[in-house]
Structure formats: structure tokens, C-alpha cells
Amino acid sequence: MEAPVHASPVTLYVNGTARELVVDNRTTVLDALREQLDLTGAKKGCDHGQCGACTVLVDGLRMNSCLLFAVARDGARITTVEGLADGPELHPLQEAFLERDAYQCGYCTPGQLCSAVGVLEEMAAGRPSAVTAPEHPSGQAVPAGDTEIRERMSGNLCRCGCYVNIVRAVDDAAGAQAGAGHGGSEGGAW
């Protein structure tokens, strides 16, 4: 019988670049990014899927990278916060976060941003949330709006208390994405 193998070669397509790695099977995508690829944008807030700071996009879907073994995600396309901007051109969400001051200490911010990218795509694809009306037609874009954004962004904790600004920022970006037809902001401090 062969000796058990506790490490594996994997290829992760990170921000559009193939990265070939040998990982200890215990290595999460988060640790592979931070410790092996020096991509420290994704943050380790809790390491147990309870805060969202590690959120990245995996094959287009937002996930907690701290709960994904890299070996099990061999071949996946990963987008981290470092991959959101187009060269010097920031992603509209990044611009909106700056403008709305939707961050303070910045530690949850990369996860908020990646999550928000996923949220906008999920809403555009008509995927429901807990606050989407049950009668909303499946597959039809869910209008953005504070209630939807708040619920969908609730997997990303922010201890500095930037939630209301985050909602504004995501709403701005949703508006930019959808044009004038989006659900709109429901008021607030700004």
C-alpha cells in the first residue's frame, strides 16, 4: 500500500492567471492566497465562515475562502479584491466605497467588495434573497434597493459600523450598472 499523500498539486486561476501550487491538503483557498501567493487582500477575520472578510469569487460565485480546501477547488477561477480593478481603473464598487466612505479600518473591506460584486450579479440574474417577494418572477432581475442590499450583504460583518455607507455604495454601483431603473435608495444621512 502506498504511503498516504497529504499534499497535492493544484492549479488555481487567480485573477486571470494560472497559479500552480503544491498545497498541504489542509490549506484553504484563503491560506493559499495569503501565504503562498502573497495575495493578502482577502482577510482572515475568523477563519470559520462567520465574518465574510475572506470572501472571494469562485467561478463567479462569492464564497468564504476560509472554508474551501484549495485541493478541492483545483481548476477554479478565483477573483480576489486585487483582481477587481482594471489596471489603474477602479471597479465602480471600489469607487463607490471611496466616495461613500464605506470602510474605516479596511479589514472587512475586501470581503465586502467581493461580496458586493457577487450580490450585484445575483440580483441581475434574478436570484432571490430572504427579502425578495415570493411572487417575484424567477430569473427576472431583482431591483436593487436598501432592503435587498442589506440582507444580501449580511454575510459580511463590519465592526467599525459602516453598514449604512456600504449600502449606499452598493446602491450607487447598482444604479450605475442598471441605469436609472434600479430600486433606489430609501433615504439616510447623505
Binding site: 442590499i149 440582507e151 453598514y163 439616510g188 444621512a189
Partner: peptide, 13 residues
Amino acid sequence: VAVNADVPDVQAY
């Protein structure tokens, strides 16, 4: 810790 959905509207002046 409060999540986003817990904090619908906070205004400071």
C-alpha cells in the same frame, strides 16, 4: 455582532 440587516438607517448630524 449586528449585521447589515440590523442597521437600516443611521443618521448623524
